[in-house]
């Protein structure tokens, strides 16, 4: 992640450059949208959640102390939003009302792939994502941040406010739990 570019954009935004905010969104929207999707599974909900996260970023940017820490700050905000939304949706029975069939996107054929192979690949992805979604929140968080967002242990430690050793042991437990959930598939 281009931290220097983010820091420059934060500075520009604080000086009144609204375009800098758009650039920040462009820089992080893929990461944040996928993080949200990992939590709520449903695309419209993930879009709404990602938008809310960036709205909060816009409104609370003056609370960011160190511009160079924008990435970690953004992830902390995002995780808080995701946790709150997840709880809210769970209370409303959002997740129990979803079936495996009606939450996924369609078959997107990439060039050169046969429909069968592509279906198999997308089906595998779907199963893995579903299995991640069923993990306990603490396990899911660490998997999303490390294995899907590809953040370093240092970054995860900063975002979650946990010692690095704890992050590693949580991650190991989460991966073992995921392996157990997918053992029939392996």
């Amino acid at each position: 992640m281009p931290y220097q570019e983010a820091a420059q954009l934060v500075r520009a935004f604080r000086q009144g450059n609204q375009q800098a905010f758009n650039r920040l969104v462009a820089l992080y929207q893929r990461k944040i949208y996928n993080l949200a999707l990992g939590y709520v599974k449903q695309e419209d909900e993930a879009k709404d959640l990602a938008q809310d996260i960036f709205v909060t970023v816009f409104r609370q940017m003056d609370k960011l102390q160190d511009e160079s820490k924008f990435g970690a700050w953004l992830y902390q905000l995002a995780m808080n939003h995701c946790r709150n939304r997840y709880q809210k949706l769970r209370r409303r029975g959002f997740f129990t009302n979803q079936s495996l069939d009606d939450t996924e996107t369609g078959l997107n054929l990439s060039s050169g792939a046969t429909p069968e192979k592509e279906y198999e690949r997308q089906n595998t992805s779907r199963l893995v994502r579903e299995a991640i979604a069923t993990l306990a929140p603490a396990e899911k968080e660490v998997i999303l941040l490390r294995d899907l967002q590809e953040l370093s242990y240092e970054e995860i430690s900063e975002i979650l406010g946990l010692p690095m050793g704890t992050v590693k042991s949580k991650l190991n437990r989460a991966r073992l739990a995921l392996k157990n959930r997918l053992k029939h598939f392996l």
Partner: peptide, 9 residues
């Protein structure tokens, strides 16, 4: 990773 929707911004 999934591509974010075009109307996100």
């Amino acid at each position: 990773p999934q591509t974010p929707p075009a109307d996100l911004l």
